[in-house]
């Protein structure tokens, strides 16, 4: 995966490129908006990580020109400001996501991966530890053995796996699994989750309850996904 990083602070640029390389990404660094703009006219990258406050033309302008050329490359903005107008403006102008400095390696990598995943064609296969999911046939396997899941249970498990490590509320689960003219109660969600818990007991995943709110699917033995 090839990342173009545009950041004028050399120490931060160096840090970002090191951690991204550590996570298996190839990184090109430029320090000004102008050089980024020139480079982007000839080169195709998987993702653009772009600081807003740059010497010369700023990050907003780089994105604006990129989109004006019809380039749909995913863009992650980095900003030291948390002024709301900056965030809104960045997203309006065509950036896909933003990250407020200082951020952690995990956050940065997760955001970049999510952007790339969104822009590239979906694969039907998902593999987390010993659990694999075939989204085409709507079947799940642990160590190759198929799981007995109802349609609703499958939908809940799929949603939880898509949101792995994230806290999701029961309402969010209902909204995600609902097709039109159906009704699902909060109690029903609890029932689905407790059944799924039993069925995936043999996997490396566990579902933790957040009291009064919802659930989080975690890899066993690792809390902060």
């Amino acid at each position: 995966m090839h990342v173009l990083l545009v950041e004028d602070d050399l120490i931060l640029a160096d840090g970002i490129s090191r951690v991204l390389r550590m996570h298996g990404m190839a990184v090109d660094i430029v320090a000004t908006g102008d050089s980024a703009d020139t480079l982007l006219q000839h080169t195709e990258m998987a993702v653009l990580v772009l600081d807003i406050g740059l010497p010369g033309i700023d990050g907003f302008e780089v994105v604006r020109r990129l989109r004006a050329r019809g380039n749909a490359m995913p863009v992650l903005l980095l900003t030291a400001r948390d002024a709301i107008s900056d965030r809104v403006r960045g997203l309006e102008i065509g950036a896909d996501d933003y990250l407020v400095k200082p951020f952690s390696t995990l956050e940065l990598v997760a955001r970049i991966r999510a952007l790339v995943r969104r822009s590239s064609p979906q694969s039907h296969e998902l593999q987390i530890g010993n659990l694999s999911l075939d989204q085409f046939s709507k079947r799940a396997y642990i160590d190759g053995k198929p799981l007995e899941l109802s349609v609703r249970e499958w939908a809940v498990l799929e949603y939880l796996i898509q949101q792995i490590g994230r806290v999701v509320s029961k309402t969010q689960i209902i909204e995600a699994i609902l097709t039109w003219n159906e009704e699902v109660s909060l109690n029903a969600v609890e029932v689905y989750v407790s059944r799924i818990r039993l069925k995936i007991a043999a996997s490396d995943l566990s579902i933790r309850t957040i009291r009064g709110f919802g659930y989080v699917l975690e890899k066993t033995g690792q809390h902060n996904a």
Binding site: I11, L12, G15, A80, D82, K101, P102, S104
Partner: peptide, 20 residues
């Protein structure tokens, strides 16, 4: 505060690279 954020981000990422 936000002038401090960029250098802090630099230190943090360098350390996160170094630690493992």
């Amino acid at each position: 505060a936000h002038q401090l954020r960029t250098p802090l981000a630099g230190i943090k990422l360098q350390l996160e690279w170094l630690q493992p």
